[in-house]
């Protein structure tokens, strides 16, 4: 499957996937002598769910950290929305419309669910500090307008009951859901999910899968996710990148990847005689 960057494609379930939103070109990331990512190129297209899979230590999270700006690759280019991205700080990248959740939940534990998701709207709020200080008209109106958006997200994720609970008191599954809510608060162009289903039971995984599909479907959000549960990955993603030891060993639709001998080797091992 080779497409040029503006071409669209249609998935088996009838959705249209648009042009390239983000493109990684020949990314190499080294920590001293350790090569975490070796010359990897792939693209993420408008409206798709793109999975990155691979065994532990393959460099998947490092890849997200490159997209986020936590790591700066020694070689290669990152292209976002048709422009080559200069080396940026993570908070600048957030303002470009890239949001993310973490493998180990990184919520603001002392704040309520509501405040966490409101903080997610940080890039969308503009009132200057002196207006906030006196709670003057524009600042209060902005607060209320953003609260409305946050309430929509709360409804969407079905977490109305824990709206005012400090998130430190919530069970694990709900914390994961609130973290997704916080990322959605930014109304991102590209949503990165780092193992959204880690440590969940089957029902929680089903719920989370449903939320991810709904986010993609209702808001048209482009999603890139890392996940270890192959069942989930094969079910919900449109295209899959497979990494092993920092290198890309496969890229394509779930069916293509499933039948790729290199991928089977990496996951199941191969008999050497």
């Amino acid at each position: 499957m080779s497409l040029d960057s503006s071409q669209t494609m249609t998935t088996p379930d009838g959705r249209t996937i648009g042009g390239v939103v983000m493109e990684m070109k020949h990314i190499t990331l080294r920590f001293g002598g350790v090569v975490a990512i070796k010359d990897i190129s792939f693209d993420i297209r408008e409206g798709e769910i793109r999975a990155i899979i691979g065994p532990n230590g393959a460099g998947k999270s490092s890849m997200l950290n490159v997209i986020n700006g936590f790591y700066h690759p020694q070689e290669g280019e990152v292209w976002f929305e048709g422009k080559r991205r200069k080396p940026m700080k993570p908070h600048e990248i957030a303002h470009q419309g890239i949001a993310r959740t973490f493998q180990n939940i990184a919520l603001f534990k002392g704040m309520t669910t509501l405040d966490n998701i409101m903080t997610g709207r940080f890039t969308r709020m503009k009132a200057p500090w002196w207006q906030q200080a006196i709670w003057a008209g524009p600042a209060e109106r902005e607060e209320v307008a953003n609260r409305e958006v946050v309430e929509k997200i709360i409804d969407f994720l079905e977490i109305q009951a824990i709206r005012k609970t400090p998130v430190g008191r919530l069970p694990y599954g709900l914390q994961k859901r609130v973290e997704l809510g916080r990322a959605l608060g930014a109304e991102p162009r590209l949503l990165l999910l780092d193992e959204p289903m880690a440590g969940m039971n089957v029902e929680e995984k089903e719920d989370m899968s449903r939320f991810i599909l709904d986010v993609n479907d209702e808001f048209g959000t482009t999603i890139a996710l890392i996940e270890h549960d192959m069942g989930v990955v094969m079910d919900i993603s449109d295209r899959v990148v497979v990494m092993d030891y920092g290198a890309k060993i496969g890229d394509g639709t779930p069916d293509e990847v499933r039948n790729n001998p290199a991928v089977i080797d990496a996951y199941l091992g191969v008999a050497h005689d």
Binding site: K89, H91, H95, A106, F108, M111, F122, T123, A186
Partner: peptide, 19 residues
Amino acid sequence: RSWMAIRDMDIAAEIIGVN
């Protein structure tokens, strides 16, 4: 909220746009 975000989890604060 940006102050509390920095207090509770500075990496996550940065990722949602807090400088």
